[in-house]
Amino acid sequence: MSEGAKRGWRDLPAGALILEAGNAERYFTGDWRTQRPVIDLQKCTHCMLCWFFCPDSAIRVSQAKVEGVDLDHCKGCGICAAVCPVKIRAISMVEETQALRAGKDRE
């Protein structure tokens, strides 16, 4: 999942500093996943618990509303589905193979 050619020693910042903050978002951990969260936005109450407890900053939110899952980074841990309130259950975990077969590569 690396990008481009690796630079030679003359072209790297001294002391192994990383000068581009947050560039890890270009590293995709989505391919670790064996299951993926599917959010039923009809049921979702936008309580934000899934977003609050996501280890991978992978629940996409905007203006206090849940919009979907960042599948480039979601590792499929299932915490979001687990913390979704029992009476709502808006998130289900779907086997990755099943999801791919259904052609839902991206939400």
Binding site: L49, P55, D56
Partner: peptide
Amino acid sequence: VKELSLHPDLLSGGHRLCAGCAESIIVR
């Protein structure tokens, strides 16, 4: 939590902690 969700996330995705790790949740 809704109010907090208006703030930018200061820890990006793409880190390589295990799936389901508590540490990145705490840090976020």
